[in-house]
């Protein structure tokens, strides 16, 4: 009997190795860890409160997932992390064992592996090589949150949007191409920079008229990266300074 695609251990290990947490691990350890993982799929659009998932630790094998916070009174959401294949969640609950008030939304169909948090805590204790991947990943997540907090406090919407786009330049794609956010809705882009759909829409239309970006068929492309860089470099302080000078 031929093997079925998703039960192929080697292919799952190859996918796991895309994660910075699992990439450095020995094959034998990965095989052992696989015994504790459960394979899951989440359909595109699935939303779940983190209370549903806080007892498990997830590795994304394919697809994108948005982790955010919602204001229950207004329904407004801010995206804390846009997670991609190789990313894991929820690191915060894993570390402090407390519920994390966040909402998860599958942007694409997702393929995931999940393991009980107690088991993953055991890996942290027992396997220094797992820790060596885990700590830099934790640092990366903290840096993401620091960038978000800094952007929200220090920059205006135009600058935040320019910085968001530039942070998602595709290092492996053609020059100036984007990844992860290239096909997101204006609403989703707004949630990543603490604003709303209409503001993003207006800004992108303005940049399109300037020839800075091209938005067509639901995809975003950069036309003039230098112009976008200039917009990203402006801070709220310097803009206010300009206004004062003008005044």
């Amino acid at each position: 009997m031929p093997s079925i695609p998703f039960s192929d251990k080697e292919s799952i290990i190859r996918q796991l190795r895309k994660s910075p947490l699992f990439e450095p691990l020995a094959e034998s350890l990965l095989v052992d860890m696989l015994r504790h993982f459960r394979r899951e799929t989440w359909r595109k659009g699935r939303c779940s409160p983190s209370s549903e998932t806080e007892k498990r630790f997830y590795v994304i094998l394919s697809g994108r997932l948005k982790m955010g916070r919602i204001n229950p009174e207004t329904g407004r959401m801010v995206t804390l992390f846009l997670l991609k294949p190789g990313d894991v969640f929820d690191v915060i609950s894993l570390l402090d064992g407390k519920p994390h008030r966040s909402t998860l939304e599958a942007i694409d169909d997702l393929e995931l592996l999940s393991a009980g948090v107690e088991e993953v805590r055991r890996w942290i204790e027992l396997h220094p090589q797992f820790n060596r991947g885990f700590l830099p990943y934790l640092g990366w997540q903290m840096r993401q949150l620091a960038d978000l907090a800094g952007d929200l406090a220090l920059h205006d919407t135009e600058t935040r949007l320019a910085r968001l786009i530039l942070r998602h330049l595709d290092p492996d794609g053609p020059a100036n191409s984007l990844h992860l956010i290239h096909d997101l809705s204006h609403e989703a882009l707004g949630e990543m920079i603490g604003t709303v759909r209409v503001v993003v829409n207006r800004q992108l239309q303005h940049w399109q008229r300037e020839g800075v970006i091209l938005a067509r068929r639901g995809r975003l492309e950069i036309q003039e990266i230098e112009a976008l860089l200039k917009k990203a470099m402006r801070s709220l302080g310097s803009r206010n300074g300009k206004s004062r000078n003008r005044g």
């Binding site: 989440w42 359909r43 699935r46």
Partner: peptide, 8 residues
């Protein structure tokens, strides 16, 4: 041979 959970 394989087992998975599917959530929609």
């Amino acid at each position: 041979e394989d087992i998975a959970i599917h959530l929609a």
